[in-house]
Amino acid sequence: METAQQLDKRSLGNNDAAKDKAIKEQDTMTQDTPYPEQTVGSPYVDDPKMRLRDVEVFYADNQAIHGVSLDIGKNEVVSLIGPSGCGKSTFLRCLNRMNDTIDICRVKGDLRLEDQDLYDPKLDVVELRARVGMVFQKPNPFPKSIYDNVAYGPRIHGLANKKYDLDEIVENSLQKAGLWNEVKDRLHSPGTGLSGGQQQRLCIARTIAVSPEVVLMDEPCSALDPIATAKIEELISELSESYTIAIVTHSMQQAARVSHRTAYFHLGRLIEMNDTDTVFTKPEHDLTEAYITGRFG
């Protein structure tokens, strides 16, 4: 796991000693409680937006994800929870092939967006990522103006023919992200000058400016204060009307507040997946229960 974690640290920028501690605690936990043969609960839905089967991820020789299968339904918010280092972010990054940017990472399994095989060699990543957008853990606006940040995606993909169209896309996206009123007077000031929460909403606006079908969010609130977090959570609920959303979070409360269904990951395995209410009120597996009752993680 060492390499995987180092990579994790490099690419995600979160290194905390707590992580190592958490893993140790999980190890002791794991000795008593066996993994389930199959994922507990109901990981599958009818007519899913994304159908993911037997996903395995390797960093060089270390296996980070072990045979995860689940569905993400249309216009559904799915949250992935679990202790640090359990592979939930790695899993999320498979869904728009962001893992391609790490040389030694290999992904196996059958991952489909509607009927499209995500790892089909003929598939174009550029096209895929235009359909499956991603919001990252740390707000990462480009060192450009607010306008240029949002217009970046539409520009590179050629989505707007005229300046007028582009203006409209930018305004719409900022409005959907709930940022329009705060920034409409300073669209041409740098995006890096916004507050953390505003930056993250800018990143969300930037993502939805391309009108993706699925939005992946990798712990979008972990770097934000509670008020900013509340705003983002509100936004997620609104966005779920038009987009399919998968969100990784380490806050169980957040998962409970924003998601329809919740998947619990443990050391690279999907232990349990169910309606959010069920997971948090009547967890079926001991590990899930241990986690949501705060015995580790």
Binding site: D124, V126, E127, A130, R131, H157, G158, L159, V210, S211, P212
Partner: peptide
Amino acid sequence: TTEKVRKTL
């Protein structure tokens, strides 16, 4: 979107 993106590829 997909259609437009495909054109630019």
